[in-house]
Design a protein around this nucleic acid. Structure first.
Lengths: 186, 186
DNA sequence: GTCTATACGAAGATAGAC
DNA sequence: GTCTATCTTCGTATAGAC
């Protein structure tokens, strides 16, 4: 399978962007990490680095929204949110606070806003769906989902700066209370 | 005054980082934007680009926390928060959604976590002080301040990606309700 | 303190063979 | 599809004169 190498490159790009950022990740890094053949970069990605970044963002958007949907439970409004927060907690801990969100890296450094907006939107939609199913009013669920995505992305940045999980813990505590109140649960 | 050029370079770096990121901003860009003399870069910043970035982050941290303190009113718990959010709203609108937070840019791209943690900490402390003065319990005020900083930083990213103020508006609405409840106000 | 010139090292992208 | 070699651009940093 030759397009296997292609997919590995996309995944490696997403992985490396988290720690080194967009400009800080060279093609050679992606090649080294993915084990993909060097000569086929522009065969698979004629649009160059921008195309690779766009697909990495799309991959991250799809991957995490699928995770949120899988963790959604009608009877537990915070289950999906906890899964979402738990994912970021793991990224931080596993990387010793060196890695963050690849979508954020691309948003800050490049002008690929379309792909980033799509990824953020997918996460928000997945969370909002879960909150609505748990009893929140649809409009409120949308606002809460935006708050959750925003707060988690921001807290991840604070955690990296502080080399500590404290900011994410604080945010988690506040968000869970807020969500339970919005879903009419005790 | 010769150290005037130095300060202009720091401010220009902070300004340019918001839009182009850390790696995307070259010394030549800082020179062009600040009008500072080219030959004095390493005279003023012997530590090179890393030192310039560190001082730019420090400058941003000091600048915004001073703004929050100035806007703090004992009788209005959301006044300082509104000022903080309003600052970011203005950055987004004035730049046509191309600019964000310089501290975030440095956090994502470089390893200057100390300076970034200090900046985030100053903002949080300034906000927490205002919330405490307005009636929130100290421990709660700290958690809320962390949530506010996180959510605003994240929302700014979402706004840039979406080229829209909607995420920040959603976050603002949720945060103001939460703050008023925490301060025992109606 | 400020200048010019340059060394040095990436990194993205392309060309053409296999 | 994949390889190697190379072009080109750019940016940090240094050296040394004024």
């Amino acid at each position: 399978m030759t397009s296997d190498a292609r997919e590995r490159m996309v995944r490696s790009a997403a992985y490396l962007f988290r720690e080194r950022g967009f400009s800080g990740t060279a093609f050679s890094d992606v090649i080294a990490h993915s084990g993909a053949p060097r000569g086929s970069i522009y065969h698979h990605f004629p649009g160059g680095k921008a195309q690779l970044a766009e697909e990495a963002v799309r991959y991250a958007g799809e991957f995490l929204s699928a995770g949120v949907r899988a963790a959604t439970r009608d009877d537990d409004p915070v289950a999906a949110v906890r899964a979402f927060l738990g994912w970021w907690r793991r990224v931080l801990v596993d990387s010793d606070f060196k890695a963050g969100c690849p979508v954020v890296a691309v948003t800050v450094e490049s002008q690929l806003s379309g792909a980033a907006a799509d990824a953020f939107g997918r996460w928000g939609d997945a969370l909002a769906t879960g909150l609505t199913a748990a009893g929140a009013a649809p409009a409120r669920a949308g606002r809460l989902a935006t708050l959750i995505v925003s707060a988690v992305e921001g807290a991840t940045l604070l955690c990296r700066a502080n080399r500590s999980l404290d900011p994410l813990d604080d945010v988690t505590a506040e968000l869970e209370d807020l969500i339970e109140a919005a879903c009419g649960t005790g």
